[in-house]
């Protein structure tokens, strides 16, 4: 049964920037439907790790394996460029902190959502548009904005559009880099709630990079704490936050502002 097997296996992944460590010897498994938060301060290597795992950045050592839809576990390094890119725009999603990095700002919201469908061969305008409208509804964007470019959208709407654009091909794994960063608190709350709902409805596996422990608490099942490129503590999100073991984790947790 595939549900009993990990979706993603990361082994001993390392990446250096010259003599400096980006991330060092990171290993973990991710299971279908599981949300894993990677937390740590700026420069702790969490984004480097995310980029290496998602093959946006080449790791210098280690291995990333992914269970394809046919159930076989494949090393990403063994795939050709074409296959890897196909995987990235069908079975994977990537939500950037800055929506402008993940959207085409000058084409309409409908085309932004429809692009992945067209990339896998959808050639019926009416159907593509219907699907786009449906997804705008799911991410709570008024459907009369379907022909507006994201330039005309607020930050929160752009982020929701970016999420719709990624989810339209029903990916099984989504990478998120600070998806709520830079948004107002009220906008952030709405987005978090939307993400929580989508993740559980669609059974998505998510690797979520965030420096916000409250976001990690709300969305993730499991957590890895990074410092200086290394994973220093990992475990159930509740456990890491309620009973942090490592000095650095205790510092992080004790630094959360109480409202």
């Amino acid at each position: 049964m595939t549900a009993e097997q990990p979706l993603l296996k990361v082994s001993n992944l390392s990446r250096f920037y010259g003599g400096r460590i980006g991330c060092l010897d990171v290993s973990f498994d991710l299971w279908p439907g599981e949300v894993l938060a990677i937390v740590g301060e700026s420069g702790s290597g969490k984004t480097t790790l995310l980029n290496c795992v998602s093959s946006r950045l080449q790791a210098q050592a280690g291995r990333v394996e992914y269970r394809m839809r046919d159930g076989r576990l494949r090393a990403l390094s063994d795939m050709g460029e074409a296959e890897r890119r196909f995987l990235m725009r069908t079975d994977w999603g990537f939500v950037h902190q800055n929506p402008a990095d993940g959207l085409r700002m000058t084409v309409s919201a409908g085309a932004n959502v429809g692009e992945r469908l067209m990339a896998v061969g959808a050639r019926h305008y009416g159907h593509i548009r219907e699907t786009a409208v449906d997804w705008l509804q799911r991410v709570e964007i008024n459907t009369d904005r379907v022909d507006d470019p994201p330039r005309a959208f607020s930050g929160g709407m752009r982020q929701r559009l970016q999420i719709a654009r990624n989810l339209v091909t029903a990916p099984r794994l989504v990478f998120m880099d600070e998806p709520t960063g830079g948004l107002d608190v009220s906008v952030q709350a709405r987005l978090l709630d939307l993400l929580r709902g989508l993740v559980s409805d669609l059974g998505l596996a998510v690797i979520l990079v965030t420096h916000d422990l409250a976001v990690a608490r709300l969305l993730s099942h499991r957590m890895m704490v990074m410092k200086d490129g290394r994973v220093i503590e990992a475990g159930l999100t509740d456990r890491v936050l309620d009973d942090p073991r490592e000095p650095y984790t205790q510092l992080l947790v004790s630094s959360i502002l109480q409202v």
Partner: peptide
């Protein structure tokens, strides 16, 4: 060049989609 090499032409239809939408 990469898009030609990998036959990734979805973007071409994005342009045509925009034409129809507008």
């Amino acid at each position: 060049r990469m898009m030609h090499a990998l036959e990734e032409y979805g973007l071409m239809h994005v342009k045509l989609y925009e034409d129809i939408a507008r």
